[in-house]
Amino acid sequence: MDIEKYKVSEDIELQKISTLEFIEDAEKKLKKTRKKLADLQDTMYAEGKYSALICLQGMDTSGKDSLIREVFKQFNVRGVEVNSFKVPTELELNHDFLWRHYIALPAKGKVGVFNRTHYENVLVTRVHPEYVFSENIPSVKSLDDLNDEFYHARMEKINQFEKHLVDSGTIILKFFLHLSKEEQKNRLLRRLNIPEKNWKFSSGDLKERKLWEQYQECYEDAINRTSTYYAPWFVIPADDKPTARFIVAKTILQEFEKYNFKEPTLADKDINKLEEFKAQLNNE
């Protein structure tokens, strides 16, 4: 599969990118891919040289939660950490906007998954700029201060943040689950029509849906300004969940393979004594 067609290497227009792709036997292919991915992550963990940060963004119902469950289900639990970022707490608001993300970063050898990410700070807050007032930024005195210049400067800070992480050994892959408005309606209706899915529904989903076009504009601008060679964005067609999951898993696998992770070897002094160690154990 050519993952390059999903990578954002030049400015995009989301409305011109299809939200629907169907890959035959995607679920079966995902099973094979996630096993390879889990094995590769075990080697990365043993090597302890790199960490990886997988960023997932998308409109409500785009399938982030189920994608995490299906793609990473075979990972050793010690090697993967999932964080979901919702409304900032009082403590988080008393720090800069990247602080809560920085302290959640994966250690070397581990894969960190951000379900919603630091990009919420240039997406949700751009659609609802009044939220920024909770950050108590000295230079922000009115809504007039929360203009394009403010958000573009914040995006540049994100670029610098990610560059610092990459230089320190973190592999960053960012995925936008590109969902159609029609498919979102179908998924919201499913939550309403199936009793055991009711708990997933929030009336706030409908309020946010009315702002669909604004969100698409903000996503497009953020993706274009922050897809870099060191931390690329991938736009994934998300109307078919099995296909989206397989594409994400395959992309992560192919990107990880570029790093040629290697398990560490025993020190020469221990290698020369392997037979002696075996004998000690067998003679107990």
Rank of each mutant, 00 (worst) to 15 (best):
M1Y: 15
I3M: 07
K7S: 05
V8I: 10
I12G: 07
E13P: 03
T19N: 02
T19Q: 11
L20D: 12
E24M: 00
E24K: 15
K29N: 09
K29M: 01
T33C: 14
R34W: 04
Q41M: 02
T43V: 01
Y45C: 01
A46R: 11
Y50N: 09
S51L: 04
L53A: 02
L53W: 09
L56R: 08
Q57N: 08
D60R: 03
T61E: 00
S62C: 05
S62I: 12
K64P: 02
L67R: 05
I68M: 05
F72H: 07
F75Y: 15
G79Q: 14
V82L: 08
F85L: 06
F85N: 05
H95V: 04
H95G: 07
W99C: 04
W99E: 03
P106G: 09
A107V: 15
G112P: 03
N115C: 02
Y119Q: 06
N121E: 15
V122L: 04
V124F: 13
P129A: 01
P129T: 06
E130T: 07
E135C: 15
I137W: 07
P138Y: 00
V140W: 02
V140T: 11
S142E: 07
L143T: 10
D148I: 04
D148Q: 13
H152D: 08
H152M: 02
A153S: 02
R154G: 03
E162K: 03
L165W: 10
I172R: 03
K174D: 01
F176L: 14
H178Q: 00
S180P: 11
S180I: 13
K181A: 05
K181Y: 10
E182R: 14
R187F: 03
L189T: 00
L189Q: 07
L192A: 08
E196Q: 15
E196Y: 11
N198I: 12
W199T: 04
W199L: 04
W199V: 03
S202F: 04
S202C: 04
L206E: 00
L206R: 04
K207C: 03
E208F: 06
R209Q: 09
L211V: 09
L211E: 09
W212G: 06
Q214M: 08
Y215M: 07
C218V: 06
C218G: 08
N224S: 04
N224M: 07
N224F: 08
T243Q: 08
T243L: 14
R245S: 13
E255K: 14
E255H: 05
E255L: 03
E255V: 10
K262L: 10
E263S: 12
E263Q: 11
P264E: 10
P264Q: 03
T265H: 08
A267H: 13
D268G: 11
N272A: 11
E276W: 13
K278V: 12
N282I: 15
